[in-house]
Design a protein around this nucleic acid. Structure first.
Lengths: 348, 348
DNA sequence: GATTTCAATGTAATCGGTTTCACATCGTAG
DNA sequence: CTACGATGTGAAACCGATTACATTGAAATC
């Protein structure tokens, strides 16, 4: 007997199912998408055929016809940063619940890669974009413009406080930084070192501005010293060393993320400074690990899971009714005081 | 003048470009995919039209026709685990270089989710699957079977030492665990506590078996105590507490990942035990943070980046010539001795 | 000058679904 | 008994690309 059918390694299509069930492809499609409009008898017949052939609809064909992919694209500056990976988890979780898959792109903070990924929107490889970096990719901007009066499915997480028309979810960075400074001033610190992340990101700018405002309020702007970092442990160590080698070293250092605070711990160690007796240190993000540092790190807890969830919700809203521009969402942070901050040592 | 064309919010298609350039869609397609077979004059004319219309080919249409998506699916048990996120980075990086995008699925170690993602293979939403967990999803197994004589594009990272026919990339876990034990025995330790990850994963089993073999070799099986963990910091703290509250507590504890070692540090702290004087601790993975612990953690460094890279290479090989079953790859690990291990305290 | 060859392009089928519209059947109201 | 609406199904258009095959015209060959 000659097999005229497709070879066994071929996936079966909707036509195979239709033939086997003795119906048209339209009916098969209906059974799978709108089962209620099909007569029960037909339905079971088709379902049996689907079973027998282990039929799974081809996604590309569906996408082509429906112009919908069921995927969300998320770009992250650095997957291996625990802060981002937690947000990612919140995104992934919520997206899944909404029936979407998540495509992750690690951009390594590289503009070219950001553009690469953003182009996927135009190609319709994803229904929406969540970007966690601070740059709005040019390709994404083009895309938004091409959608003209409608709101484009592009959302930012963490970074965009600006009113660029990009909906976003974030904490009030300025206020959070202000809270940290307030805490330090209330402990009697005056000379405070600040270690921001890379400049140019609204996030760093907002925090810096909030910290500076607090310094002004406490009439301590002259004792407010900034030493840049790039969010890596090593850069924190270097910035810490620079700060502590000044003629009048700060009694407290505020890092804009926890990793850099780890670097400062390391430097303090090397210089035989005790934390918090000789030096208070504050981080930002409250990564899983912060509470297990020695001493446990005072830091600002961000609602990571909720940030992730929020970005997806915004996106869903846009995808549902594209004409409404959703409001940016500001979530609450928590200043988490542990044991790395203490009253300033009396001035020598 | 009445605009008869598509509304401005509509993306332009290959037909629009063809019309504008005065050629057929075939030519447009050729200009974009095989530019060399088109006459230069025509080529520039088409390219100009592409420019003007900001044309980007629709991915779904391309996929449907070519039966290739240019995407790799990667499932991870836990994105927020720094170990996995580093592997992911290696994967993402290599895939990108090979012209593939990476779809990440966080399965949260949940079987149902693993199946969900694996189903994407059948739907042809991805060209291949890399799974970093220890379960081969049933859906993936089906898929492999349906491809019958050909090797299916399914690859494992870290876990599959077995000969299930799944190509994989990993270190020699048994040997690595043996190295750790050898190190501890050479420092004079006898009573050693082991904190594996969840049982059932080949990874944990291999390490356990390697550790046990070493114990046998050193005639110390009676002083070999196992206390299970689940790879979380908290479970490490609990397991550590259990071990240290025994009548004859171990003088060294070997955790199967660094996070659990952090938990043991925490417990030691609470019990006023000094590391390494009173207790030696060893971790596994060498996450970024390990060297900054106090004291710096002795651990096993895995070539994370290379593992990620390796899985992608295997996949590429399979996608290129599906008939060849690639060999599993074993990469070298490095026992990284820091300051959390020291000679055993003299027996009291 | 006729024939062959080849480069450049067009025609149309195809990938595998979804969806519109038309049609058939049947029960029921008038 | 006719008319009508409701229900279930099929035929075929369609989504937007790629590509096998056909066609054309000009250069090369004898």
């Amino acid at each position: 007997m000659v097999r005229t059918g497709r070879s066994p390694t071929q996936m079966s299509t909707i036509y195979d199912v239709a033939k086997r069930a003795g119906v048209s492809t339209a009916t098969v499609s209906r059974v799978l998408s709108h089962p209620d409009v099909v007569a029960p008898a037909t339905r079971t017949r088709v379902l049996r055929a689907v079973q027998r052939l282990a039929y799974t609809p081809n996604a590309a064909a569906k996408h082509l016809r429906t112009l919908r992919t069921g995927k969300l694209l998320v770009t992250v500056p650095d997957i291996s940063n625990p802060f981002f990976s937690l947000i990612l988890r919140g995104i992934e979780d919520t997206a899944q619940r909404e029936g979407y898959f998540v495509l992750v792109g690690d951009t390594q903070d590289d503009q070219a890669r950001e553009e690469m990924y953003a182009r996927m929107l135009k190609r319709k490889e994803a229904d929406g974009l969540i970007f966690l970096g601070h740059r709005l990719p040019k390709e994404a901007a083009d895309f938004m413009r091409s959608l003209a009066p409608l709101t484009a499915p592009v959302v930012n997480g963490c970074e965009f406080s600006l009113r660029l028309g990009i909906p976003s979810v974030h904490i009030d960075n300025a206020k959070a930084a202000g809270d940290v400074m307030g805490h330090l001033y209330s402990l009697g610190h005056r000379r405070i070192g600040i270690v921001p992340g890379p400049l140019g990101s609204p996030l760093s700018r907002d925090r810096l501005q909030g910290a500076r405002a607090s310094a002004r309020k406490h009439r301590a702007t002259r004792d407010f010293v900034v030493m840049n970092g790039d969010f890596s442990i090593e850069s924190g160590a270097v910035a810490g060393a620079r700060l502590l080698s000044r003629r009048e070293p700060p009694t407290a250092i505020f890092c804009f993320n926890d990793e850099m605070a780890i670097g400062v711990y390391d430097t303090a160690h090397r210089l035989n400074l005790r934390i918090p007796d000789d030096l208070s240190v504050v981080g930002f993000d409250d990564v899983r690990f912060a509470r297990y540092m020695v001493p446990p790190l005072t830091t600002v807890a961000q609602p990571v899971r909720e940030i992730g969830e929020g970005t997806v919700r915004l996106l869903m809203q846009i995808l549902r009714d594209g004409s409404v521009a959703p409001e940016p969402v500001t979530l609450p942070h928590i200043l988490t005081i542990r044991s790395s901050t203490a009253p300033a040592a009396p001035r020598k």
